[in-house]
Every structure is written in structure tokens, then in C-alpha cells.
């Protein structure tokens, strides 16, 4: 199982490198789709079918949004000039994050042995206390429904922002 996870993660990293470095924007977007489906497969093997379903569907819709709304307009690549300052800064940040992560992993619980103080309670009590067999649904909509309300409002606000930005009518013409 561990080897499978490593292979999938390598596949995702290669997919992200292709997505970042390729010249053609359409293939960049499709490579992001490959990374997303890899993530979804990983969720499935990690015992999270709820998230695997959601990830596949969201991946399809985000691919359609990226292709139809942006790449469809203008497919030209821009990277003509070699911008050494930005590349050095980016690589510096990459190295910094990996170093900080390796430093921080010393204090974390090892992979495969999570701290499940409150989760044990959720798992053993979900059918009796909420009536939902699916523990994730029980946590989302009963134990932590207030959190879900907040996240639904965040989604509402982001969609509202997109609609306000895209609206054309009702704008006053600029006086010259």
C-alpha cells in the first residue's frame, strides 16, 4: 500500500511539473486535471470515498471552468523572457518550505497512527446519537453543523463576488 501511495504522489508531482512548465495552456490545464484525478485516486485508497466522489466531480467542473472561461479566450503562451529573479525566489521558497516541513515532522504523530481523541467518540456514537450510518455525514451535519454553516457562507460569498465582478449591466458609463 505504501509503495502505491509513493507511486501516485510521484505521478502527481510529475503532472504538476508538466502543468507548470509546458508552453501550451490547454495542455497545462489538462495536466492539472491529471493531478486532480491522482488526488482523487489517493483519497479512494486512503479510505475516504466521500471525498473521492467530491474530488472527481469538482475536478470535472473546474477543468470545464478553466478551459471554457480562460483558455478558450486566449491560448498564447507568454514565457518569452527568462526571469531569473522570480525563478530564484520561487526555488528558494520551495527549498525553505521543504526544510521547514522536515523540521516540523519530528513533532508529528507518524503516518498511520493518528491521534483520535475526539474521533473515537464520533465513530462509536454516530449511529446511536445522530442516526446517520455514514460518520462523515454525522460529523458534518450534526456534531459540527455550525462549522458547515460557516463554510456554506464562505462559498456563498465567493460566488457572490464572482457574479458581481462579471456583471455587465447596471454599470454607469465613464464620463470623459
Amino acid at each position: 500500500m505504501l509503495i502505491l501511495f509513493h507511486i501516485l504522489l510521484f505521478f502527481m508531482i510529475i503532472g504538476s511539473i508538466v502543468a507548470i512548465e509546458t508552453k501550451n495552456m490547454l495542455s497545462a490545464v489538462i495536466a492539472v486535471g491529471a493531478v486532480g484525478f491522482g488526488v482523487s485516486l489517493m483519497f479512494l485508497f486512503l479510505g475516504a470515498p466521500d471525498i473521492a466522489i467530491t474530488q472527481v466531480i469538482v475536478e470535472v467542473l473546474s477543468l470545464v471552468i478553466l478551459i471554457r472561461a480562460t483558455v478558450y479566450i486566449d491560448n498564447r503562451a507568454i514565457e518569452r523572457k527568462f526571469d531569473s529573479f522570480a525563478i530564484i525566489t520561487g526555488l528558494l521558497f520551495l527549498g525553505f518550505f521543504i526544510m521547514a516541513a522536515v523540521w516540523a515532522f519530528g513533532d508529528m504523530t507518524p503516518f498511520g497512527e493518528p491521534l483520535m481523541r475526539v474521533s473515537r467518540r464520533y465513530l462509536s456514537g454516530t449511529a446511536a446519537e445522530t442516526g446517520a450510518v455514514n460518520a462523515v455525514a454525522g460529523v458534518i451535519l450534526d456534531y459540527r453543523a455550525y462549522d458547515t454553516l460557516g463554510e456554506a457562507m464562505v462559498l456563498f460569498a465567493s460566488i457572490l463576488g464572482a457574479l458581481v465582478i462579471l456583471r455587465n449591466r447596471g454599470k454607469k458609463p465613464v464620463v470623459k
Binding site: 505504501l2 510521484f10 508531482i13 507548470i20 495552456m25 522570480a86 521558497f93 518550505f97 516541513a101 507518524p110
Partner: peptide, 24 residues
């Protein structure tokens, strides 16, 4: 077991690199 975490952080680093270094 830690190498999985490190690979995942490397994936995140790819995103940060694209966010900083790319102009498109």
C-alpha cells in the same frame, strides 16, 4: 512513512513556485 509527507509538501512547493515565478 515520513517520505510520504515530504513528497506531499514537495507537491505544495510546486504550487508555490508556480505562484511566484510564473507570469501567466
Amino acid at each position: 512513512h515520513t517520505s510520504l509527507y515530504i513528497l506531499d509538501i514537495a507537491l505544495m512547493g510546486m504550487g508555490i513556485y508556480a505562484l511566484i515565478a510564473k507570469r501567466h
